[in-house]
């Protein structure tokens, strides 16, 4: 290595050193430490005692933990496709060149800027069983259905009934699709215009263009948003935490893995167990991301390739 190359290497290392130092101190060390503490009985303030696989064996038997796993998987399985579908549909609609399109884009993006706590409080009232706007909108529909089919349907108490609580949370989450929508919109505008023009010359309609051009060209963006939603939905915490006043929701239907981790770490003084839950979430997200990458490898098309 020449002197110039050494100097360039040193300069490069110096430039990346803040990131490397931050990564080591705030990502790698906490990760390794939590992996170690996950094999300890540890309450933060008393010394950590090595207990081997005890925490993981307890996890395996812990019915509340498995309920949290189920809640999280259900939430992810419904909210990710629904969120992607909604953000993609909105992005396609907002990609039309119509007058005032900038205003429409702003209107649809604005709700995603709302802080999560405000969002939770707002939707607490929206989903209120007695005076909520959602039920006010549902009342006439259910009334019509009842009179047509001799039914006795009543609107649910969204956040009070276990069967509806997660659905209420999923609807709340749809308010945050603005970020994914903007990324989709950027992806849509990146698709070369000449592809559509060629298709139009060949007589393709809107659906054919969407299926044959938009979706394949947008596949890397769909993949990116999908992975981001996957990670986000496994970390869901603030909104259910506020909506349930720090609790678990009716019959623990709103207890998610991140909430259970937090409760164990800070409410129950069980940091070792919380670390084990954290590692479980990490491995679960890692496996699902690898699976998504594997499954989508045949359907994601990069322009460079």
């Amino acid at each position: 290595m020449t002197r110039l190359q050494k100097r360039q290497l040193l300069t490069g290392l110096l430039f990346v050193s803040p990131w490397v130092a931050g990564f080591l101190a705030f990502s790698l060390y906490p990760f390794l430490a939590s992996a170690y503490f996950s094999a300890c009985d540890y309450s933060v303030l008393s010394p950590a005692v090595w207990v081997g696989p005890d925490n993981y064996l307890t996890l395996a038997r812990d019915t509340i933990f498995w309920q949290a796993v189920w809640n999280t998987l259900f939430f992810a399985a419904v909210s990710i496709p629904l969120g992607l579908l909604m953000s993609l549909t909105l992005a396609i609609l907002l990609n039309f060149n119509v007058p005032g399109i900038g205003i429409f884009r702003t209107i649809f993006f604005l709700p995603s800027l709302m802080p999560l706590v405000c969002l939770a409080v707002l939707w607490l009232w929206m989903l209120n069983g007695d005076v909520g706007l959602i039920n006010a909108a549902l009342q006439p529909i259910l009334k019509t259905l009842n009179s047509l089919f001799s039914l006795s349907l009543t609107p649910p108490n969204w956040l009070q009934e276990p069967a509806f609580a997660k659905w209420g949370l999923i609807f709340t989450g749809l308010w945050g699709v603005g970020h994914a929508m903007v990324i989709f919109l950027a992806g849509l505008q990146d698709i070369p215009r000449h592809l559509y023009e060629s298709a139009e010359i060949d007589g393709a309609g809107f659906w054919q263009k969407t299926w044959a051009i938009t979706l394949p060209m947008l596949s890397p963006v769909i993949y990116f948003n999908g992975i981001m939603s996957l990670i986000g939905s496994f970390q869901v915490f603030a909104v259910p935490y506020v909506m349930t006043d720090g609790g678990d929701g009716p019959e623990r239907s709103l207890l998610f893995l991140a909430t259970y981790l937090y409760q164990n770490a800070f409410d129950y003084w069980n940091m070792g167990y919380a670390c084990a839950i954290g590692l479980f979430i990490f491995i679960l997200i890692l496996l699902l991301t690898l699976l998504a990458t594997k499954v989508s490898s045949r359907h994601v098309h990069y322009e460079g390739n």
């Binding site: 209120n128 069983g129 007695d130 005076v131 909520g132 009543t154 108490n157 009070q160 009934e161």
Partner: peptide
Amino acid sequence: ARELLSFRDG
């Protein structure tokens, strides 16, 4: 039960 929940929600 549902009536109680609805009443409480109000």
